[in-house]
Structures are given as structure tokens and as C-alpha cells.
């Protein structure tokens, strides 16, 4: 029975937790899905995420679903290092002899990690881009941070990326704030992929876009994930996004994982009461 191989993880999140405020002694028992709250009644501390574990392999996309406030983005931010975490570990392994314990890195090592190992695409382009800088300039920033010095090779790499993400090259020298929402997301994707990171975190990447524009961005993301064999984590409250991009999912409710499943199984046979409520609301 050992001949089935589980793909090797590139990103491993183990018992990750994030608490805002001071938790009382029984704070964990007094919060969570059974209680229906993430707020510690004694101290008012918020258990934004607790005991969140999952692994993602190269070429695989994991979905993180849940209502707003369920802890999806907190988990994402803790992995990306935008936020400190209170418990657990995050490890990345990009080759057999290189394993990095993300949470024990110094701030400057973490910044380095964001340059060429973990890329993040945010719902709000203002978080991922400098809107007052040109598209080309935005892409040049991770490249120069990674040590690129030659102006013309940076230009040519930037145009290659913009071409791939379907941004017209004649917009390369325009400031990003003059771009439409969909185009900004494409520039964010180009910037995220600049140094060919093995891991990409996508936080509601198409939320807020017009349906037709969202469809185009979604198709682009699907193509990029396949082409580069990325290990991806996709946070979304939209099941059509999850269904299209991922084959496995976790469901978060009040900061805890209430179910993990294959995506088709989650949609057809959700087990946890909360998952059933989510799916039936989305499919009605």
C-alpha cells in the first residue's frame, strides 16, 4: 500500500495561530466555531486564526474559503510576513537541501523571501503596487531588489512579463493609477512573477472586478499557475473562483479549520454544518 506517492510539499503551514490582544486562560475554549465567536468574552481578545495546518506542493493550488472575518486573510498575511503570528510554524522547501523556517527569520530575511520565494497578489492593487509609479517601474523594483542592475535587461524582462500578463506594452511607462482595475491586477501578477517565485499567495484576486474582466484575470491566473508549476494558495469567498483554480480546499470558520476536502467533494458533499451552509448559499 505504499506505492501511492504524495507530492512533496513546497509550503507547509503547521498549527498557525494569530491572536489580537491578551487571551484569557480559557480563551481558546471560549472561542471557535462551536461557540460561534472568535472574541474571548473575558478579555475581548480576538482569535483571528488558530491551529491552521496545510501543505501545498508544486503545481498545486489550495483554496481557503470562509465568510469575511473567518480568518482567511489573516492566515495569508501571516504566511506572507505582513503580520506576525502568535503560534505555529510556516516552512518552505524549494529544493531537497533548502528548507526555510519562515517565522524565525529576521525582518530583513523576510523581505528577501518576498523578493524571490513567496509572491502575494492582493485584492487591492494599492497593497501590491506603487500606484504613482509606472508599470515598468513597479516590475523593476523586485528585479533590482534581486540584484538586477542592467537597465536594458530589466526593461526587456519587464516587457516580457507584461506581454505574458496581457498588458499592452505601450502602457509600460504610464503610472499604474491611470490603469483600469483589471489592468492593475495584471500588473500585480507581472510584478509577483518577476523573479519566478515557487510560491504565490492570491488574496481575492478578482473580487471587485466586473464579471467579464474578472473572467479574463482568472483565466490568466489559471494559465500562469499551470505554466510555472506554482504552489498556490487562493483565498476567496467565491466558489466559482475556488472551483476553477484549486483541487483541494480548507474551510475556515471563526479562525479554525472546520473542514478540509477535495474541491469537488466540498461542493457536492460538504460535511461540516458551516460548510453546508456556505455551499448551499453559493449554489442556491
Amino acid at each position: 500500500m505504499t506505492s501511492v506517492v504524495s507530492p512533496e510539499w513546497v509550503l507547509k503551514v503547521n498549527q498557525l495561530g494569530k491572536i489580537f490582544g491578551n487571551l484569557s486562560e480559557n480563551g481558546l475554549a471560549l472561542t471557535g466555531p462551536e461557540i460561534g465567536s472568535s472574541k474571548d468574552p473575558a478579555t475581548g481578545a480576538i482569535v483571528a486564526a488558530w491551529d491552521v495546518s496545510f501543505e501545498v506542493a508544486a503545481g498545486e493550488a489550495l483554496g481557503v474559503v470562509g465568510e469575511s472575518g473567518s480568518g482567511k486573510s489573516t492566515v495569508m498575511r501571516c504566511i506572507a510576513g505582513d503580520q506576525s503570528s502568535s503560534a505555529g510554524s510556516v516552512q518552505i522547501r524549494t529544493s531537497p537541501d533548502e528548507q526555510i523556517d519562515v517565522l524565525s527569520l529576521t525582518p530583513s530575511e523576510r523581505r528577501q523571501l518576498r523578493i524571490d520565494k513567496i509572491a502575494v497578489v492582493y485584492q487591492d492593487p494599492a497593497e501590491g503596487l506603487d500606484l504613482n509609479v509606472t508599470a515598468g517601474g513597479n516590475i523593476a523594483s523586485p528585479l533590482t531588489a534581486a540584484g538586477w542592475r542592467n537597465f536594458s535587461s530589466i526593461r526587456s524582462r519587464a516587457s516580457e512579463l507584461l506581454l505574458r500578463t496581457e498588458v499592452p506594452l505601450n502602457r509600460m511607462d504610464d503610472v499604474v493609477k491611470s490603469f483600469s482595475g483589471g489592468m492593475k491586477q495584471r500588473v500585480q501578477l507581472a510584478k509577483a512573477l518577476a523573479n519566478r517565485p515557487p510560491i504565490v499567495l492570491l488574496d481575492e484576486p478578482t473580487t471587485g472586478l466586473d464579471a467579464s474582466v474578472a473572467a479574463g484575470v482568472l483565466d490568466l491566473i489559471r494559465g500562469l499557475l499551470e505554466e510555472f508549476g506554482l504552489a498556490a494558495v487562493v483565498v476567496s469567498h467565491d466558489f466559482s473562483v475556488i472551483e476553477m483554480l484549486t483541487n483541494r480546499c480548507i474551510v475556515l470558520n471563526h479562525g479554525r479549520v472546520v473542514e478540509s476536502a477535495l474541491t469537488d467533494q466540498l461542493l457536492e458533499d460538504p460535511h461540516h454544518p458551516y460548510s453546508q451552509k456556505l455551499v448551499s448559499a453559493a449554489r442556491a
Partner: peptide
């Protein structure tokens, strides 16, 4: 060899 699909992990099953 035989493998029990019911007891595989999600990622093992996805591969299979």
C-alpha cells in the same frame, strides 16, 4: 498492490 481509496489523503487521491 492494492490501495484503499477511502483512506488516502486528499492529495494522494488527487494524483491517483
Amino acid at each position: 498492490s492494492f490501495v484503499d481509496l477511502v483512506s488516502l489523503t486528499d492529495s494522494e487521491l488527487a494524483t491517483l
